[in-house]
Design a protein around this nucleic acid. Structure first.
Ligand SMILES: [Zn+2]
Ligand SMILES: [Zn+2]
Ligand SMILES: [Zn+2]
Ligand SMILES: [Zn+2]
Lengths: 132, 132
DNA sequence: TTATAAATGTTATATTATTACATAACGTTA
DNA sequence: TAACGTTATGTAATAATATAACATTTATAA
């Protein structure tokens, strides 16, 4: 059973706007959209984002400085994330491929490093953009 | 045979400082260090960084907004990068594991996406930090 | 040589993210 | 309930990262 996280007011507002958008959103674009709901300062947004990332409800797309709702209800620990990013239309989707995640979660080499977490970003052209 | 890239003056200065540092460097820390060599503006640094990334002499560590010299002389195209990052001492090293890179370069799924490039970042504790 | 592309210099500005400090709400348990 | 610790909020200021716009110079090559 997964742990239930009761989101606070700001966390809910910010999660909902990202989730509804269906794609990655940038912090200041979120800020702009939630001004009408009383969230006026960047820090309010960043604090909610930090928490949401921590509990796995959203992920940060590092190469884009953007945040996307988790599309994979089972990955609430956020320790194994993979995304595909279209370099043309900037569409992003979360890859949920159990072979891939097994392969990467079990990866180890002779560096002596203990791997705890990974983030993988694939870049290319999505179906639509390929056929243009 | 690999293509020879004749670095320009600024590109050489900036590559050398990153390469000598042996680890990831941030843009403004590079800027600070190269002021004595006449490079005074952020844009001069970012332009050199962009070029160096493009030709694969350095890579960007996305989760750290930092740049590291390529530790793998064969990856001058920069289309398949993997790093291990110690969350304690922030040591970064480039993973060069042919099985891993083959696996990821050949990865495909039913999304219809044509994957051209990837970047993978592993996080954990390095040997030294583990034993503390 | 002359054209073209690549690199540089400079100023200003945009974008992304954090520090610092004060206050309020919440959950636990004495 | 009262007291306590933890989490969340509000607000202002500022730090850190990155790009736009424009003028000029240098390298490459037809
Ligand atoms: Zn997820
Ligand atoms: Zn696309
Ligand atoms: Zn490399
Ligand atoms: Zn370490």
């Amino acid at each position: 059973m997964e742990k239930e996280h009761n989101l606070s007011k700001n966390q809910k507002i910010i999660f909902d706007i990202i989730d509804k958008s269906g794609g990655p959103m940038k912090a200041y674009s979120i800020l702009f959209d939630v001004q009408k709901k009383g969230i006026k300062a960047p820090l309010q947004v960043y604090r909610a984002l930090d928490k949401l990332v921590e509990i796995g409800k959203i992920h940060k797309i590092e190469s884009r400085n953007a945040f996307i709702a988790c599309q994979n209800s089972s990955c609430q620990i956020s320790k194994a994330t993979a995304f595909s990013i279209c370099e043309s239309c900037e569409n992003v989707s979360e890859i949920s491929n159990s072979k891939l995640s097994k392969y990467l979660s079990n990866f180890s080499d002779d560096s002596g490093m203990k791997y705890r977490k990974y983030n993988l970003e694939f870049f290319g052209l999505c179906k639509k953009c390929k056929s243009k």
